[in-house]
Design a protein around this nucleic acid. Sequence first.
DNA 1: ATCAATTAAAAAAATTTTTTATTAATTAAA
DNA 2: TTTAATTAATAAAAAATTTTTTTAATTGAT
Lengths: 401, 401
Amino acid sequence: MLEIKESVVEIKKSRLKHLLLKELYISGPSTVIKISKIVHSSPPSIAMLLNELAEEGWVMEVGVGSSKSGRKPVLYGLNSSHGFVVTWSISKVKGRLVLYNLNHDVYAEKDYNFKLENNNSYAAFIAEKTREFLKEEKIDSSRIIGVGICMPGLIDKNTGYNYTHKNKEDKPLNALIEKYLDVPAFTLNDAKAIAFGEKRFGLAKDYNDVLAINIDWGVGLGILLKGEVFNGTAGFAGELGHIQVRPMGELCSCGKTGCLETVTTTEVLIRRVKEEIAKGRVSKILQLSNGEKDTITEDLIIAATHQGDELCIDLFQEIGTELGKALSIAVHLFNPELIIVDGLLARAGKFITIPIEQAINKYCLAEFRDHLKIMTSQLRESAASFGMYAYVMEHIFESGV
Amino acid sequence: MLEIKESVVEIKKSRLKHLLLKELYISGPSTVIKISKIVHSSPPSIAMLLNELAEEGWVMEVGVGSSKSGRKPVLYGLNSSHGFVVTWSISKVKGRLVLYNLNHDVYAEKDYNFKLENNNSYAAFIAEKTREFLKEEKIDSSRIIGVGICMPGLIDKNTGYNYTHKNKEDKPLNALIEKYLDVPAFTLNDAKAIAFGEKRFGLAKDYNDVLAINIDWGVGLGILLKGEVFNGTAGFAGELGHIQVRPMGELCSCGKTGCLETVTTTEVLIRRVKEEIAKGRVSKILQLSNGEKDTITEDLIIAATHQGDELCIDLFQEIGTELGKALSIAVHLFNPELIIVDGLLARAGKFITIPIEQAINKYCLAEFRDHLKIMTSQLRESAASFGMYAYVMEHIFESGV
DNA sequence: ATCAATTAAAAAAATTTTTTATTAATTAAA
DNA sequence: TTTAATTAATAAAAAATTTTTTTAATTGAT
């Protein structure tokens, strides 16, 4: 985006400009004097840089600020329509494209139905749909400053290899998207995106060390340390779904036995409901599904739960306890201040958070529980795309170093 | 140490000076031009700052550097005798004081015998012994730039409360030491200190995401992320000893059951050896202890292990497996590139690392094992004090912000 | 041994940045 | 309504920093 030049002066200037953009992006419109205090540069310098950024189109005057007495300051903010970010949040069963302007606003969005599979035509599909979408929305592709894609599973931070490219014969998703669309592309695990979305726009705003658990078709753990997404060496950090919770348990898709994912996913929940009903246990669920066993869905189960159905509540108790037990290990290792519960099953609300909390109280040392909070996401499905948007924005603003 | 002034220029200058000190401390002697490239300032500026630091006593010319052709550059380095750092590394059964100069050299050291107990006269004791020691070594206390203390157990990052101050009625250790000795004081969990020691002076030098497991009278896990000590919100991160590994297991000192610490500490090992021998199992141990059962120590057990004693090897296999199982969870959550095994039981070498490695191979997904290395510490007991020294130095050099 | 090439250091010149002073805008009290 | 107080923006002066030039030191090839 902004050019980076060689000399010491140019390097410093470029850094400072990126810093200003990031400051405006994170804290919103601000004044010359406020910014100069934050970045430790003199007001004339900041004014000059802001004017340069305004000429380049990134920044604009967005009004006047307040003051108890004296002249009112000019407010500078990002020029929201100077660029757009495309995000794809992909689950095992569908994909959503969201187009954001530079001011955190959803400009347009669209859902796509498809199955996440190990298939290297994936990148081409995403690129194609993105192009189509931009045409529909009449946005020239040159105005896109970055693309972000989040999906479940392990995603290699360095190579970009992921679920859709397990064979590693083809180029990784990032590189392919960049080739097809000629824009910087970023890939991130979905739970990590959710965690970051909560940091910038949700419950985690004022917290730095956060675990975000995404209970969906799998179990993902997104970790924020010092307010930033924690990746680990390869980008695999937070893989909670495949720790063993039942030593002689079921065979997992990963090849091991008794993984958390064999107990606490939406898929397992649906299966367990069906099993219990088949065993003859009574439940409101059958009413809700018009007596059909095959049409039992997660939506029905959650509805039944909120209506007080004992079977469903028991099953959420079971799942929550197991999750809480696993989470209490993560709590001992990360010492977080907040746990956010998100994903399809988070819609069960208290019915899942209370068992989780109970298990944490049982298995964690007191010191770890003292200031730990547990909440369910308010952003819901949008957490991931918001997080991806923020991830793209900040990586672009940071690349000025 | 260095004064911090108000104006933009002074702030920048102060920051740069601290940065130079840190650079010289970490990378050793360097030249004006090298430094200027690293910190993006012009050579004249760097030369000026180095001269100022030299006048203040922190820096000195330490020789001339090499060059393929052309004039040889002056090497600037820290003035090693301009200050000293005192470190205390405290275990459950003893304490060691080490005095370092600014150049990573051990100037003097001394061991003290005492038991770590919940007792608020602790700080006074440490301060008193430190003063005595400095008098013996004829070092004026004004030359001490910082004190670092590491010990097992939970240590609150913010308040400094720790094992020795569980009741929280008294002032925390940090504050007390600072009061008694009038020097900045830092407290850190011992496993964290070991991890950081390995980062600066040991096996972890070239690694950023590292787990250091300290198998001692307890089990501690020190975590390095991006090369820095990871603390978590309160400073409790890495508490591996109290995750439940045996659901219906022994009662732990923490009040819970089946904690890792009920299985994998030196104490448990000694007890298990005695138990097995009492049960009639044959072992070389009894020869080594002259037939006495009460004089069996960890040293004897490790010696017997290296001599091929089956009982001891079996027990290390048991401990290693359990540790490896617990570590594999940590591997899934942190995705590290290196695991370092340290502490008393690390002296068993391969006899403990192989079972650990085997368990990790069994319980971790392939992607996590791909680039993961497992090593035993070379620094041994000195890792903790080295780490504490580095921690103190870097916090002091960083406080210029 | 001498000279060209190379690199560092120091000095001088040029530029950038900060600081200070001035002017402009706004609020609240007289 | 006027005036003092306050804060922002701008301009000018001062200071600091970088860049360029010059000088010094060193290596290696001729």
